[in-house]
Design a protein around this nucleic acid. Structure first.
Length: 197
DNA sequence: CCACGGATTGGCT
DNA sequence: GCCAATCCGTGGA
């Protein structure tokens, strides 16, 4: 079942927690990609200097000020796209970065997107979507998808339960220097598709 | 106008 | 473990 508006228009930390285990789906001209979310990070412009929205509304970050339920995509280090789930009420400037997923459907096409001329062995399959840039590359998500309505049918999330044995843990966020102490990275303990242990 | 640096990745040591 | 690649948003002159 597709997650509705109410799921997204809540506080960012609750959404971040509950995104774990949910399935992100992209349908592009009949091609379906899907993956189970296993690692996320929360960003909150009101108190978090690492959030793009901390400096106020600009052309780049305006989508992140939408009400919850939109996709915010930005270019990282000049070469990788990263995608976020916008949360909260309009103007809150909060979002959850998707850092890693477990590939489900469309795996062969993901491999093509990530490694155009390469055959993968079993170990390399774990490198397909274990990082925010890798997820976007596999799913062919780019800046054109920034602002996509997640209650539509291009990109959306499906409800799904965590397995009984799975445990959610948290840590500091990865790759930032500002507000680095905030423990806003959430992930499924011991999942093989994490970007880091 | 220009300089700086970042929510990353992959290849090499 | 270290570091280059590569772009553009942002802020200061």
């Amino acid at each position: 079942m597709k997650l509705g508006k109410d799921f997204y228009t809540r506080d960012v930390l609750s959404v971040a927690n509950e995104l774990l285990g949910k399935v992100i789906v992209k349908i592009d001209r009949g091609n379906m990609f899907s993956g189970r979310i296993v690692e996320v990070e929360a960003y909150d412009g009101s108190i978090d200097q690492a959030a793009h929205t901390y400096i106020g509304k600009t052309k780049r970050n305006e989508v992140m000020f939408n009400e919850g339920g939109y996709l915010y995509v930005y270019l990282s280090y000049g070469m990788h796209y990263c995608c976020n789930i916008v949360t909260g009420m309009e103007g809150s400037g909060t979002a959850v970065l998707i850092r890693a997923v477990e590939p489900l459907e469309g795996v062969n096409r993901m491999i093509k997107n990530r490694f155009p001329n390469k055959k993968l062995n079993k170990k390399e399959l774990y490198l397909l979507t274990n990082g925010p840039g890798k997820v976007c590359k596999s799913f062919a998500i780019n800046k054109n998808h920034s602002g996509v309505d997640l209650t539509g049918d291009k990109i959306y999330l499906e409800d799904s339960k965590l397995k009984d044995i799975e445990e959610i843990v948290n840590s500091r966020r990865i790759g930032i220097t500002k507000s680095a102490h905030l423990p806003w990275r959430y992930f499924i303990k011991n999942n093989p598709y994490l970007s880091r242990k």
